[in-house]
């Protein structure tokens, strides 16, 4: 097309656009979030890796069971203690700080669970 004056700048803009994450981060990957784990407890509802990957699905299942079938059951066994299917009365009993636990990961991964529009986070 012999129109390098327009094509080459266009191509450069395209390449800069595609490689935007490289310029944006400028070689700094940042720290991996370290959620503050409860000190008094050793175990979570599910094994550690499953909790990391699947906790939202667990919460979703609990929510559906509680709200759709009225199954409030105190049938979540962690260690020797039985827990209720509940966001505030279970998760947040052990993970007492939303800011130092849930939010650390969520900010990093840019997820903003809307749960807290209604559910009240522990007072900090």
């Amino acid at each position: 097309m012999y129109d390098g004056g327009k094509i080459i700048p266009g191509l450069i803009i395209f390449v800069l656009f595609i490689t935007f994450p490289v310029w944006y981060n400028r070689g700094n990957a940042g720290a991996v979030p370290q959620p503050e784990l409860p000190k008094k407890f050793k175990e979570c509802v599910l094994p550690y890796a499953d909790m990391r990957a699947e906790h939202m699905q667990l919460l979703n299942r609990w929510r559906d069971q509680v709200l759709r079938t009225g199954d409030w059951g105190f049938d979540v066994k962690i260690g020797d203690t039985m827990y209720q299917k509940s966001l505030m009365n279970t998760c947040m009993q052990c993970h007492t700080s939303k800011k130092k636990f849930c939010d650390r990961c969520h900010t990093y991964a840019s997820v903003k669970p809307y749960c807290w529009d209604c559910h009240i986070a522990p007072v900090e």
Partner: peptide
């Protein structure tokens, strides 16, 4: 979902673009 740890995935993805 099992094994899909978004934190580890993001660490890898950000790692890729920061070399």
């Amino acid at each position: 979902r099992s094994g899909v740890d978004i934190i580890a995935i993001k660490r890898l993805a950000v790692g890729l673009v920061t070399f």
